[in-house]
């Protein structure tokens, strides 16, 4: 699980004195990370056949690439986008998948770098609440308006008590004389 170094940005603060030691440690970690990154060396093109150890990995890869947004061509997922960035993201998703990362870990990796925006299905949280609730909100608004209209019509129907002369006048209009 050396690859976990990749998952989170380095958290340590550096004091000037400790810099050399941390630098050495960082270099070792990076070297290991570099070895992992080296696996499929080039970006993955669209529809390129890929090998997986298990069927579950294949499924995870193809689910993930359809759920991640290509951040430079924002209406496309990385599954369908021809942008170079999407190809790199596919490569990273593939690597992490065959290294045994779970679906959530891959999504977390991407959101750490590109924000929630990278998810085609945004999570339900405070700043996306309106996005999720608005269809239901509109339904409620529409429902209330509809009820109002219906009620008003019923009232109008109920209040149609005309006097005798008015009714006769109405009859005349209807006949058209």
């Amino acid at each position: 699980m050396i690859g976990r170094a990749l998952l989170r940005p380095a958290q340590h603060h550096r004091a000037p004195g400790a810099l050399a030691g941390l630098r050495a440690l960082g270099a070792v970690l990076l070297l290991l990370a570099g070895v992992l990154v080296a696996a499929p060396a080039t970006a993955i093109s669209i529809g390129q056949p890929l090998e997986f150890e298990t069927e579950a990995q294949r499924e995870q890869y193809y689910t993930l690439v359809r759920e991640l947004r290509c951040t430079v061509c924002q209406t496309e997922t990385i599954y369908e986008s021809p942008a170079p960035l999407a190809a790199d993201m596919r490569r990273r998703v593939y690597q992490m998948t065959i290294e045994g990362y779970s679906k959530n870990e891959v999504i977390e990796f991407m959101t750490h770098r590109y924000g929630d925006f990278v998810r085609y299905r945004p999570p339900l949280q405070f700043n996306t609440a309106l996005l999720w609730v608005s269809p239901f909100l509109l339904l409620v608004v529409g429902g209330v308006a509809w009820l109002q209209v219906v009620r008003r019509r019923q009232q109008m129907a109920a209040h149609s008590d005309l006097t005798e002369s008015e009714r006769r006048a109405l009859e005349r209009f209807r006949r058209g004389d």
Binding site: A5, P9, A10, Q11, H12, H13, G26, A27, L29, L30, L31, A33, G34, H112, R113
Partner: peptide, 8 residues
Amino acid sequence: GKPAPPFE
């Protein structure tokens, strides 16, 4: 607000 990500 996060540390510079590692690279080599």
